[in-house]
Design a protein around this nucleic acid. Structure first.
Lengths: 348, 348
DNA sequence: GGGCATAACTGAAACGTTTCAATTCCTGGG
DNA sequence: CCCAGGAATTGAAACGTTTCAGTTATGCCC
């Protein structure tokens, strides 16, 4: 059962009539070799279909040319707006540089840094890409302590100095508020995440900044903090609708499309029409957003760019090159659809 | 810059006062070693935090303990219902057996088997998991020709003999039809995929079988073939609504939730209510399905089971163990929600 | 008490590379 | 004609394991 073939550098050397050292030098262009020998080696390698063993190469060079990325479990009733395209973009960017992505499952229990430690100690990966970071992320702490190369998609504790790429979440919600004020809204609520969510705090901050910039005051009741689910979004919207008419918001900024969907469903249940009676803005631009009724106004994250940037930075770290920028923020883009419309009073 | 530490078997041996061979035997339990020595070695290994180098081990043993899985690009306006949970389940199942998943991007152009060849020849992976198979899949052809271990999620050419796990798509649509006939429907249409889709042909076949089993005749106009997108589903539904009243279907089985959403949107645009005027059944049970208005009746694929099964089979192949079953079909499950309801006449 | 099987352990080869240090072969200067 | 010096090439070590083939010690039988 020949699995794979297995032509080695030795056979190439024999066929080309040179030493294995010469073959290595030709293939890696790491020493001056005469044009004639070079051609002979290349020909021999091509004829035999030779490909150097990644394992042997890695052992000798002490690197695996592999990047670790952990895959997070997402419960069935939610979905993760970025995992999919993010993985694709990092895989692609890495492969262009001869690296591959090793995905591993983040177990639900136990120390989150365990799998990282294992991959690190066994020499399976040269660096990590992290996502789903949180404030005092133990994984970041661990990797920093052990001085192992990594780049995060997302921020953490402000005191920790580590390379990351993140979307400018605050700018996103600020744009959302600007968009709504431009449509004539002034009673704008926000359905936010719990305090322990770092991303949530940036998004909430953007909302507050946007309101301040527009000279609008914020009723404390307009800020509803709740978990990331459709049901939570729905309940939050119900709470907002229960406010007295003169304090009831006409527009709502949400932390995610999933929560926006919940909010819209609450509106329907109350006999209201999203985009006409109450405007809704989501965050993420999940594929579904455009097919909702009405299609959802939302903020699209530049996932592919984040992926490319993260890989570029990580490879620099791995290669020991200097990093021009350790903290990169990329702008989201507001996608305006019909779930946000003019203030009700202006329409009639 | 110490990246990772790098305690080797040699240091463990020295600390335990034995040869490196003994250490290896203890750690792999591959030779009889006295209890006393064993304890000393284990202690030394633990104190030093020793983990064997995966590269060295792989080089010597000629295996990487890695499984390749290619990641497919999905255009922004669609989403892939299975990639996400599937990857998680195979990563988890593989890790339980000491294997890891190497994900690589399937390039849009060029021979589809190229990346497989590369990983195979460089010895980076011991086997592959394929998904998104099609009828004469060149990747399957290539791997069969080169006798390299792989298991597919999905079938291909019936003539090719290779190990796969698939969902019983025909059973799924058969269940959908049964469900609809039980609700009193008899004019049941199907929005199907183009002829070149293998999965589509199984699902269509299930519909036909379901109709036949119920003793219902199928109007050729009830079978609309179109591509996998929301817009296509919408147009297909419009075409069905344009049929004369006595031939217009009261229920529609679709190939995917995405197309079901398109169909529901077409109903809304025509002033009709999905689940009341026309029943709709999707396929996949994407996370969004339950939050649609109305929530979508659909077929849930047992993705986690498929992943576990695929990994189990692949590891057997890699280890040279016999495969008890080379062709596994797993049943989908009908999730009944409100997009399917009783035949309109019965309600009023 | 000598021979012999068995248990416990070790030395060294091998896996397939890269790369250091050494060797060969030229060429040109003195 | 000899030698220095550079270009091209090679032999061999090293990367960190596993495992084959010994080697040593121990106990047992006749």
């Amino acid at each position: 059962m020949p699995r794979g073939n297995s032509v080695t550098i030795r056979e190439v050397a024999r066929r080309a009539g040179v030493s294995i050292a010469t073959v290595s030098y030709v293939l890696n262009e790491s020493a001056p070799i005469s044009e004639e020998t070079r051609a002979r080696v290349l020909a021999a390698a091509a004829e035999l279909g030779y490909r150097p063993s990644a394992l042997a190469r890695g052992l000798r060079a002490r690197q695996s040319h592999t990047i670790g990325y952990s895959w997070h479990h997402v419960p069935r009733d939610r979905w993760h707006p970025i995992l999919d395209p993010f993985l694709y973009s990092i895989a692609q960017a890495a492969e262009a540089e001869g690296y591959h992505i090793l995905t591993f499952a983040q177990p639900a229990d136990g120390d989150p840094w365990r799998p990282y430690q294992e991959l690190m100690l066994t020499g399976r990966v040269d660096g990590f890409i992290l996502s789903e970071t949180n404030r005092d992320d133990p994984r970041i702490r661990y990797l920093l302590d052990h001085n192992f190369p990594f780049v995060a998609f997302g921020r953490a504790n402000e005191e920790w100095d580590f390379p990351y790429v993140d979307v400018d979440n605050a700018a996103g919600t600020r744009m959302a508020v600007e968009h709504l004020t431009a449509l004539g809204h002034w009673r704008i609520a926000v359905i936010a995440w719990p305090e322990d969510s770092l991303t949530g705090s940036y998004r909430l901050q953007g909302y507050l900044e946007g309101m301040a910039a527009a000279g609008l005051s914020v009723d404390p009741e307009w800020i509803v903090r709740t978990e990331h689910s459709e049901a939570a979004g729905r309940q939050a919207m119900q709470a907002l609708l229960a406010l007295p008419p003169d304090r009831r918001p006409t527009a709502v900024v949400t932390m995610s499309d999933l929560m926006a969907i919940g909010a819209m469903n609450a509106l329907y249940e109350a006999g209201l029409q999203p985009g006409r009676d109450v405007s809704i803005v989501g965050f993420d631009d999940v594929p579904m957003a455009q097919y909702l009724r009405p299609p959802l106004t939302t903020l699209r994250q530049p996932i592919a760019e984040v992926g490319a940037k993260v890989v570029e930075m990580l490879l620099r770290l791995i290669r020991g090159e200097p990093l021009p920028e350790r903290r990169v923020l990329l702008m989201p883009r507001l996608i305006v659809r019909e779930s946000s419309g003019p203030h009700p009073s202006s329409g009639g």
